[in-house]
């Protein structure tokens, strides 16, 4: 049995038929060809499949495609405009915040949500926001630096511990 799902993905309305057991991640990747959605665990633990669903982060491996009928989804493919990287993407690039890039689409989704809700996060707040995401390559330092750099340039709130050289 197949069901039809209609939703808006990266600004375009799409309709596709899929099995009820199809996860949103597989739907985006296989039915819509949005392979920037990465699947690292299929159990909600790694964060690499994170997308924005009606503006809020969601783990696309833990949702069924049929659940997003009528919703708006943004994947990493929707973050850059007309060949120009978005500010977070640019900051990730200039701060070497990615190595293999497998975790990156999920990190970008969560960082997008963080900076929208809290334009001047402290380092600790950034780390907490990203703490649902595994990155096995970077050790997170450069990711945190990139998010900080992409944030509103106002001074972050004081009171952070700093033990770096």
């Amino acid at each position: 049995m197949k069901l039809t799902v209609t939703c808006t993905v990266n600004g375009r309305e799409v309709r596709a038929d899929c099995e009820p057991r199809r996860t949103l991640a597989d739907f985006l990747r296989h039915d819509l060809g949005l392979t920037g959605v990465h699947v690292g665990c299929e159990q909600g633990a790694c964060g690499s499949c994170t997308v924005l669903l009606d503006g809020a982060t969601a783990r696309s491996c833990c949702l069924l495609a049929v659940q997003v009928d009528g919703a708006t989804v943004t994947t990493v493919e929707g973050l850059a405009d007309n060949g120009v990287l978005g500010p977070l993407q640019e900051a990730f690039r200039s701060h070497h915040a990615l190595q293999c890039g497998f975790c990156t689409p999920g990190m970008l989704a969560t960082a997008t949500e963080l900076l929208r809700d809290n334009p001047r996060p402290t380092e600790a707040q950034i780390r907490t926001a990203l703490s649902g995401h595994l990155c096995r390559c970077t050790g997170y330092q450069h990711i945190v630096d990139a998010v900080k750099a992409a944030a509103d340039p106002g001074e972050p709130e004081a009171g952070e511990e700093q033990h770096r050289s």
Binding site: T35, G36, E77, A80, L98
Partner: peptide, 13 residues
């Protein structure tokens, strides 16, 4: 980086 940041990379899957 640009390919990886825009979802244009191609992993084996």
């Amino acid at each position: 980086d640009v390919r990886l940041l825009t979802g244009r990379a191609q992993f084996v899957d």
